[in-house]
Amino acid sequence: MNVVLLTGCAGFIGMHCALRLLERGGTVVGIDNLNPYYDVALKQARLAQLQARPGFRFVKLDLADRQGLAALFDEVRPCRVLHLAAQAGVRYSIDCPDDYTDANLLGFANLLQGCRRHRVEHLVYASSSSVYGSNAKMPFVESDAVDHPISYYAATKKANELMAHTYAHLYGIPMTGLRFFTVYGPWGRPDMALFKFTRAMLAGETINVYGDGQLVRDFTYIDDIVEGVLRVLDKPATPDAQFDPLHPNPATSSAPYRIFNIGNGRPTVLLDYIAALEEALGVRAQKRLLPRQPGDMQSTAADTSALQRWVGFAPATPVKEGVRRFVDWYRAFYRKPPAGA
């Protein structure tokens, strides 16, 4: 049976990927623990979008529950796994590192064991542009070394890549990691800048702009992300025939293992991002310029040529258009600025 096990189905990227898989006529078993890191009501609203579709089944489960996850694998026997669950947030990882250990390390280890025991056709998992850490060479390329993370969140994502390679090497299970670059769009996360800015601006409040507004991010629209993810899911990783152990490329291997950037490829200065939001809202932002926070990268920029060669796709939605679509969704979903969303 063509069953995809999708973790983090009530999350931002997870919901959108599940919807697309269901539209294609697949069967999706979605896992989420519905943790309260941000507004659970938003997660439940996303989940309601999925539960209205045929072919979807929801299982509330924490990936750190080794026995529960093993039992679910035994019951479902998925052919592919799309792993998007994680404890997210760079700054939160400084205050609550244990949450990242449990979700991003222990949870991922349990998932790898399920994939091993059931010989899944392909595991695609979410890594992050945060793994590039203090690297200064732009744009970021998958062959770059990523040995200097500057947040614990980033360190757990780098660890996931290493763990996945080990299982690909030992057991021959195709493993593909996707380094996401600042994803935004409808149904987005309330802890992300676009959501926070929108809520504050509509309420007439001052927005905190870190890095004096000069931070650079490769903002990537959700529809582009989903298209790339599904194309990758459909093409299992293979060993790289050109892999040279004397000059190893961190993004490929003699094992069925691949790493890809998935970003917009057009970095945007934060103040320009805010200008696009001002235009979409018709509201002038009251800005409080502040220094960069601990764990924040100064700039991110994705080289996506490897992804384009692999699956023939490159993200293309302009930031102005993506921000406008987010604002349209936000106004329709909330009707008015939410209190404490």
Rank of each mutant, 00 (worst) to 15 (best):
V4H: 00
A10K: 02
G11W: 03
G11C: 03
C17D: 02
C17Y: 01
R20A: 03
L22K: 10
R24F: 00
R24M: 04
G25V: 11
T27K: 06
L34C: 07
D39W: 10
K43L: 08
R46S: 10
Q49Y: 00
R53V: 07
P54G: 13
G55E: 09
F58T: 04
D62N: 14
A64F: 03
A64W: 04
L69S: 06
A71Y: 06
V76H: 01
H83P: 07
A86C: 09
G89T: 06
D98V: 11
Y100K: 07
L106Y: 04
L112R: 01
C115Y: 13
R116H: 12
V120A: 03
G133N: 04
S134V: 11
S134A: 15
A136M: 12
A136W: 07
K137M: 10
V146K: 09
H148L: 12
Y153N: 12
A159M: 13
T166F: 13
Y167C: 07
Y171D: 14
G172Q: 12
G172V: 14
G172F: 13
P174C: 07
G188A: 08
A203M: 10
A203R: 14
G204T: 03
I207P: 09
N208A: 15
G213P: 10
D224M: 07
I225P: 05
G228M: 00
P239V: 11
F243A: 08
D244I: 11
L246W: 06
H247K: 12
P248N: 06
T252L: 11
T252F: 12
R258D: 09
R258S: 14
I259H: 02
N261K: 07
N264P: 00
T268S: 11
E278W: 10
R284I: 05
A285G: 11
K287S: 04
K287Q: 13
L290D: 05
P294C: 08
M297S: 07
Q298F: 11
S299H: 10
T300M: 12
A301P: 00
D303E: 06
T304E: 03
S305D: 13
L307R: 02
V311L: 05
E321K: 13
V327H: 01
D328R: 13
W329C: 10
Y330L: 04
Y330K: 03
R331G: 05
Y334Q: 05
A339N: 08
A341Y: 10
